[in-house]
Amino acid sequence: MTQRHKVDGQPAFVLHAHPFRETSLIVEVFSRDYGRVALLARGARRPRSALRGLLLGFQPLELGWAGKGEVKTLIKAEWQGGQPLLTGKALFCGYYLNELLIHLLPREDAHERLFLIYAETLRHFSGVLQESDLRCFEKALLQELGYGLTLGHDAAGAALETGGDYAYEIERGPVRLSRRGSSGLSVSGKTLIDLARGDLGDPRSLAEAKQLMRSLIAHYTGGKELATRKIFMELQEL
């Protein structure tokens, strides 16, 4: 960061926005070089504000801000474009990614690789929605945060076997089971290998990876119920 704490032309995405005072917004953004930052967008809710309709989630932006405190002041925002707005189910999945980032990513902790994966995942979302994109994002997120999964070998250091059954123990890794289904978190060796390769074409691998990721994320979010998941489930029930 420069001496004057001024940032310009920073690629970023809006994660969430809250109204602030009469006409302003507090915007939570995920930027490439500064990670998650809270910005005050002065006058962004005025009827003729240039920022109106610009500070939308899931759209690539270039932002400029200044300030020293926890909440910086947004100075400039430019629309980068190039991808359609998310609609339908993809929109809900986008919200889920944002909630994960808001809950798990500490403020002002740069994660350039994760930023690029996030941008790439959103680009995929605007095409055909693939559930495996969600799993790969979750995997990358945990890895970036230092909670990376052990997928190369089992907890004892032995190579994973496609036909083997494992219990995934958080912070230890996969533990070989003598028989299937004795643990709530049991996964097949194939699922772990597929997840490591980022190729979840097999429906069983996809389903098991989902369960595995869900319990890992529940662990790291402290068991907090994710609002986006709750809303999405309600939608499925309608």
């Binding site: 919200y95 809303i231 939608l235």
Partner: peptide, 9 residues
């Protein structure tokens, strides 16, 4: 509907 604020059906 605002999933991040927990507002749903």
């Amino acid at each position: 509907v605002s999933p991040l604020d927990g507002v749903g059906s």
